[in-house]
Simulated scan of single mutants.
Amino acid sequence: MGDIEAPNSNRPRQNVLLSVLPSKEFASSRKGILLIAEVALSFVSFVCFAASTAAAFVTVPLLEFLAALFLLFAYSTKFNERFKGFLWPLMDFMRCVSASIIFFIISIISVSKYVDSSSKAAGIFGFIATIVFALDFYLIFNELATFLKQGGESNEEPSGHQDEFSNSDDSD
């Protein structure tokens, strides 16, 4: 008799790992490349800040690493399409804006105030992360602006939010 908890010898173990990693199509897309870069740069910046005398700034790269990792997982597994109640593009936009501003500030402070090499490296990686986050929020802003100019006729956004905007346009 078959035991339910016995491992299935027909199924390879690498499928579990492949189900967690982003798909090849998403990883090669523009959004996938930006999210992977954000995850990598936030992690490297986190490690550099943790090893430096500017360890007080370690929270920002850690939080941005976790947020970017969550969105990478959500977008690659199409988790965001199952939860239409959240405004995913707006949430992603606000994350990128706040990350670019905060990374820029802590990078300036770590490069100018601290003299150890790991603080300088964390600042340099923070500046690179600032550019990547700024590029991401610029692209998200352009997509949102195009969506709003079209009157919200795309299938990407929930239709409940479109009625609020179209009623206010009719009264003008």
Score class of each variant (00 low, 15 high):
6 A>L: 14
12 P>M: 03
12 P>E: 12
14 Q>L: 09
18 L>I: 05
22 P>D: 12
25 E>L: 06
26 F>A: 04
28 S>L: 01
34 L>R: 09
36 I>L: 13
38 E>T: 08
42 S>Q: 08
43 F>L: 15
45 S>C: 13
45 S>M: 11
46 F>I: 03
47 V>F: 05
47 V>P: 03
48 C>E: 12
48 C>K: 03
49 F>H: 10
51 A>P: 02
55 A>H: 12
56 A>Q: 14
58 V>M: 01
59 T>A: 12
61 P>S: 01
62 L>H: 04
68 A>M: 02
68 A>Y: 02
69 L>I: 06
80 N>L: 01
81 E>C: 04
82 R>N: 14
83 F>P: 03
85 G>I: 04
85 G>F: 07
86 F>Q: 13
89 P>L: 04
91 M>P: 04
94 M>H: 01
101 I>W: 11
103 F>E: 04
103 F>A: 06
104 F>M: 07
107 S>R: 00
109 I>Q: 07
109 I>W: 01
110 S>W: 07
111 V>A: 14
113 K>T: 15
117 S>V: 13
119 S>L: 02
119 S>M: 08
120 K>N: 06
123 G>P: 05
125 F>C: 11
126 G>R: 00
127 F>Q: 00
128 I>D: 02
131 I>Q: 00
134 A>W: 02
137 F>E: 12
139 L>W: 04
140 I>M: 09
140 I>E: 09
142 N>R: 12
142 N>H: 04
143 E>V: 10
147 F>E: 06
147 F>W: 07
148 L>R: 10
148 L>C: 10
149 K>M: 11
150 Q>D: 13
151 G>K: 00
152 G>E: 03
156 E>Y: 02
157 E>K: 01
157 E>Q: 09
165 F>V: 07
166 S>F: 08
168 S>F: 14
172 D>R: 02
